[in-house]
Design a protein around this nucleic acid. Sequence first.
DNA 1: TCTGAAAAGTGATTTTTATCAATTTTCCCG
DNA 2: CGGGAAAATTGATAAAAATCACTTTTCAGA
Lengths: 236, 236
Amino acid sequence: MGTMSLKDIFPIDKWDFKSESVLADLPLEDLELLTANKVERTYKKGEIIFWEGAYPAGIFYIISGKVKKYKLDKDGRERIIYVANTGELLGYHAILSEDRYPDSAGVLEESTIAFIPKEDFLHTLQHSEVLNRRLLKTLSHEFAVLANSLSMFAQKSVRQRLALQLIVLREKYKVNFQAGMPVEINMGRDDLANFVGTARENVVRILTEFKEAKILETKGRKIIIYDVRKLIIIAD
Amino acid sequence: MGTMSLKDIFPIDKWDFKSESVLADLPLEDLELLTANKVERTYKKGEIIFWEGAYPAGIFYIISGKVKKYKLDKDGRERIIYVANTGELLGYHAILSEDRYPDSAGVLEESTIAFIPKEDFLHTLQHSEVLNRRLLKTLSHEFAVLANSLSMFAQKSVRQRLALQLIVLREKYKVNFQAGMPVEINMGRDDLANFVGTARENVVRILTEFKEAKILETKGRKIIIYDVRKLIIIAD
DNA sequence: TCTGAAAAGTGATTTTTATCAATTTTCCCG
DNA sequence: CGGGAAAATTGATAAAAATCACTTTTCAGA
């Protein structure tokens, strides 16, 4: 009797950027060139790493923690595009497109992040065949994920979208996970609403409904997911 | 009295992939390597170039014409992600991400399109520093555009989204354009609705409203845009 | 451990958008 | 040039989601 993983019943990589880390298994030489002048720093919950519209000075690597990437509308409401996790790189789009940051990045929980100057990144890129290929692959995959999100948005109800994003977040909040174990998502309702693309009140109401269906529990702000399968059915 | 262009009053490149063509000014040597085995073909209106989920055999170059890139939901409704124009490249995401096509491509009007085999594309990529850089730049820019679309979708009304997409389409349907001239958009209401992300009826109703506001005229399926400025005001 | 501000949650109501059911117009094709 | 199917348009209604007003709970810091 084999252990069935989420990947067998749900195409999680269609919804998640992180198919594999850009820097994982990078030749040591390239990695050293890249990180020669890196600067590490810890950010407290709520701190901003960079702002949409600013000129990029470099890229960031998440040593530990979680980061939301979002855009603001003119009324100051956030639209969360993506939640980045430990091991992911941030801010390279702006440098590669020779433009300003297309979105803002803020930490969702205390995080340790390394800053890598633009010059080192571009310099390594010129020398590293592997980094080049990795970035092309990552960016192309990101395109597929965003295209998916866009079409989900047009075609699915708020209820379906919430179910889907809970599945995605569950993957990101797994720690020491064993098959069948519940997963605790620690995210404020406002952030969750901005990630799903709806109002806070709607998220809360649907969470209540999911509680009644024994899909999850809430403890304060924490959302404990018990039954992914039901979420998959709802999300369709 | 200078001629004011759209770029001065509206950030069109935030909404359009085509900042510049990937292949424009590519070193002749690289271009020859890339196009050594290209095959040209004309597609009639409505024909499909490739299907979402298929394994990529190569990339496509639009010699002339217009192509919609879209995803289908389970009820068979299309969600148009992007409208590609003459000079643009299609299908490279799938090859670079070593995955299947993330979306389908179908021609919106009679188009001439060149097919370039996967092997030639990858081979040229290995040899051409310029093509590498171009693709990284293009893909990063595409990320910014899709992130924009995603946040627009969450935050703007159907009326605002229609105004915005009409501005974008107007750019694509310009021919022999002189400042101040009206532009004729030749697109079916169903396609337009799928591009805006709403039902056909809503598009028609809002178009009627725009007609009454002297922003545009319709002649059969054709939409003639007279007043972009009013569209810009509505969109934001 | 107490306390007050912030966050979570609930209910009622309004607004927006989708859907259903037609009718009218366009335009292709013989 | 007429016939007819496809596409565009209009109106009425239902459904979904946003907004407003408020209560309850949580939780960090004195």
